[in-house]
């Protein structure tokens, strides 16, 4: 019954085990580095890096979801429909801009650190969610909306009980894309001073320490796979709850 939650739980277990257990692998990683270099990334614990990485992604995803969902709903209402073409063009042209460029361009404006990384993640993360919100809401058969209104629902009831549940799966897919991109971009955020699992990779690349690179890369990969499988499970759950609404 809850079988689809098993995969993310297992990945999470591997991720946590990796964060805690990597230092124990020191003897096996030793051959990767010169004798003089440290083998295990010393500056922060992997748990600290993981938590900060997650926090950056989670807060920016929450902000992006709120704004994109609000914006997507606003431009599909009768009073906001003038802005619909511009919003959808912004969402599609905006996604042409590479995330790493957004990250880089945030620095001249905001300086280094977690702040500009957060803004870049939230801004870029908006776009896939906005695109999917618009696609989901516009994909609803107008007859369904009319039927709901005919049943005496107010416009906000139509939105909450009919439109959002129908568009939910597409919106969730948009959030998944957004989060996947942002986990990757947050890792690159290490180059602009954000504290993430990208730190060991960057430090390793700068100092020619392959062991650091490997530790960071493995953990970033595990984080991405864990979160993605979590979204997969959420999607399954959504499908199960709303069996008739899978279209």
């Amino acid at each position: 019954m809850m079988r689809h939650w098993l995969t993310p739980a297992l990945w999470l277990l591997v991720l946590v085990a990796g964060c805690l257990g990597l230092p124990a692998l020191e003897p096996w990683l030793q051959p990767l580095v010169d004798g003089r270099q440290a083998v295990i990334y010393p500056r922060d614990s992997f748990v600290t890096l993981l938590l900060n990485h997650l926090q950056l992604v989670a807060i920016s995803a929450a902000a992006a979801t709120l704004v994109a969902l609000g914006g997507g709903i606003a431009v599909t209402r009768p009073w906001g429909r003038d802005f619909l073409p511009m919003a959808s063009q912004l969402a599609s042209i905006g996604q042409t801009v590479p995330p790493v460029a957004v990250l880089a361009l945030a620095v001249p404006v905001m300086g280094f650190g977690d702040g500009p990384t957060f803004v870049a993640l939230a801004l870029y993360g908006l776009l896939p969610i906005l695109r999917n919100t618009l696609a989901g809401l516009q994909g609803i058969d107008p007859a369904v909306r009319e039927a709901a209104t005919g049943m005496g629902m107010s416009s906000s009831q139509v939105l909450l009980r009919v439109e959002l549940p129908l568009a939910g799966r597409v919106i969730l897919a948009g959030i998944r894309t957004s989060v996947t991109i942002n986990i990757a971009t947050a890792a690159i955020g290490s180059t602009i001073g954000a504290q993430t699992l990208g730190d060991p990779v960057i430090a390793g690349l700068v100092n020619g320490n392959t062991a650091y690179v490997l530790q960071g890369a493995v953990l970033i990969g595990l984080l991405a796979v864990t979160v993605d499988s979590l979204f997969e499970a959420l999607e399954q759950q959504w499908l199960k709850r709303t069996p008739g609404l899978s279209g």
């Binding site: 986990i183 890792a187 960071g216 890369a217 493995v218 990969g221």
Partner: peptide, 8 residues
């Protein structure tokens, strides 16, 4: 993530 794949 790209950084991870490059690193791996």
């Amino acid at each position: 993530p790209s950084l991870a794949l490059f690193g791996l």
